[in-house]
Design a protein around this nucleic acid. Structure first.
Lengths: 189, 189
DNA sequence: CATCTAATTAGATGAACATTGAAATACGAA
DNA sequence: TTCGTATTTCAATGTTCATCTAATTAGATG
């Protein structure tokens, strides 16, 4: 499988997302045709057709053969099939996000609700609250076991309502507890 | 296989041929996300994101769920996969031409080289010559057998150089001959 | 060489579309 | 009800792109 980045992927889709070019591909699929011929059939001027053929040619979708000063174009069916196959594989779709910085929003939430180390407010919206809780969980060491009193103390440094936040941390499965002992849950991934 | 005409096909390709929309699909593929969240991540304003999501939504590619006045969008993976599968099947490409009048050019060639029943000139370019020869072949009846003298006479009504044209008709496999007898070859389809 | 034809290139125009700020809407909270 | 927030709708702006005419290139023909 050929690696295709976002940029070329969009370029290829743009190339195909045009009625004139799609028709051209269809016309040269059955048999080779000259520019003038295509212009006549499609009711477009030669320069227009020439322009589209040039773009298709760059992408390797059509081949050109000259006879005198007549240029005959024909479809490269293999290339088209390969391109359409590569364009939308499931993992391609999944990877679309990968090339984007997904952390920006989380950082903004933190900036909004944190004043230094101090938590100014607990967000009502679940997703924002999750971000805050994840940040809060990082205040605890991995592998270490905490008494409830210690947990309250750590949270208390950042917000007075340590009881609520402690329960939320458990609910969000960022921490676990058993018989009064708490510990931080390792990150999933 | 769902039938898709040229118009909707182009519309779908146009929808996907956009970096912002592709990124959006990728972002909502992994988990549902709110408009503001997406705007922040993509460094676009909310109206822009809202607009793109609306278009994706029309095509059924994303689903929306509201929680308070927060709108969460998520990918409809099945729909996307179905769309990408339907978009470029081999027979689809072949049929692209079907919706176009391919006869226009042939008619123009005939207009150019014919003056009524009279052939004004024999085209030099192979393709045009083929059109003229096909027209000429139609002057002969299917199934009937002609002597060479008769062939010359029929052609002679349209152009003085019957010898050349007779040979060309054979070369183009529009007519055949055996021991001095000629007949018209049925169309291949 | 001059001439003709086919195709491409260059430059201009217009339509489609992405993006935005401002206004309107919907909803929850006080 | 009034306020605050998230989203959508509206209207305006700027950019991209398809198409065209005019000019140029390249090949064939006389």
């Amino acid at each position: 499988m050929e690696r295709v980045d976002m940029e070329t992927m969009v370029a290829h889709l743009k190339l195909l997302a045009n009625e004139a070019r799609l028709k051209l591909l269809g016309l040269v699929a059955a048999q080779e045709r000259s520019v003038g011929e295509l212009a006549e059939i499609m009711e477009l001027k030669e320069p227009t057709v020439s322009h589209h053929l040039a773009r298709l040619s760059e992408a390797g979708l059509v081949r050109m053969r000259r006879e005198g000063n007549v240029h005959f174009y024909a479809l490269d069916a293999d290339r088209l099939q390969q391109l359409s196959r590569d364009l939308f594989t499931p993992e391609k779709v999944a990877s679309l996000a990968g090339q984007t910085d997904t952390g920006a929003w989380e950082r903004k939430v933190l900036r909004t609700y944190l004043d230094g180390e101090r938590l100014t407010k607990i967000p009502d919206v679940r997703k924002k609250r999750d971000v805050i809780l994840a940040w809060l969980a990082e205040r605890f060491e991995h592998g270490r076991r905490y008494a409830e009193r210690e947990v309250n103390e750590v949270i208390g440094r950042h917000h007075p309502d340590y009881a609520t936040l402690r329960r939320e941390l458990i609910g969000a499965r960022l921490m676990e507890r058993e018989s009064g002992v708490y510990w931080r849950v390792p990150a999933a991934t």
